[in-house]
Amino acid sequence: MADTPATAAPVAKEDVTKLSFEEALEELKDIVKRLESGEGRLDEAIEAYERGANLKQQCEKKLQEAQAKIERIGLGSDGTPTTSPFESQ
């Protein structure tokens, strides 16, 4: 019941680290737009700024994770996939 993927709740608001890059970037974009419109209450704006700073960190973290690792899939004797370093032939 708890892990029904179809009804999985949207990622909790405060858990920035669970967001994908795209989600984090999208939310950051929304926050920037909202702040630039200058609307809303001041405490909300401050909250939004803090959230935006966290989102930006998450985005940067995801961008830092750019590391190429190329592997070749092979099937083991029992048919399970295994990986080995890929070398172009």
């Binding site: 970037l25 950051l28 920037v32 702040l35 630039e36 704006a45 935006g52 930006k56 940067e60």
Partner: peptide, 21 residues
């Protein structure tokens, strides 16, 4: 491009917050 986009957002985030304050 994403890095510069994030940087841009960061700049705007800071700028708009400061401006709003």
């Amino acid at each position: 491009e994403l890095q510069s986009q994030v940087l841009d957002f960061e700049r705007r985030l800071l700028g708009s917050s400061v401006r709003q304050l």
